[in-house]
Simulated assay, not measured.
Amino acid sequence: MSSNPPAIRVSHLSKQYKFGRPQELYHTLRDGIVNSLKAPMKVFHKEPPVEEFWALKNVFFNVEQGKVVRFIGNNGAGSQGNQGN
Rank of each mutant, 00 (worst) to 15 (best):
I33K: 00
K15P: 15
P48N: 06
G84I: 15
Q65T: 05
E51F: 14
N62D: 15
R70G: 15
R70S: 15
V63E: 08
N74W: 09
F60A: 08
K67E: 15
A77F: 12
L13E: 01
G78E: 04
H27E: 15
K18M: 04
K67H: 12
V34W: 01
P40W: 07
P49C: 01
F19T: 00
I72Y: 11
E24C: 10
W54I: 05
E64Q: 12
P22Y: 05
V34A: 04
Y26H: 08
S14H: 03
G84E: 15
S14K: 02
N74P: 15
K67L: 09
L25P: 08
F61I: 03
N35R: 09
K57F: 00
F61K: 03
G76D: 14
N58E: 14
I72H: 09
K18A: 06
S11K: 14
Q80Y: 02
P48V: 04
K57T: 07
S79Y: 11
Y17S: 05
K15W: 03
L29Q: 01
N82A: 12
N62Y: 07
Q83H: 14
N75W: 13
V69Y: 05
A7G: 02
N82M: 14
F19V: 00
F19W: 09
Q65F: 13
P49D: 04
G73V: 10
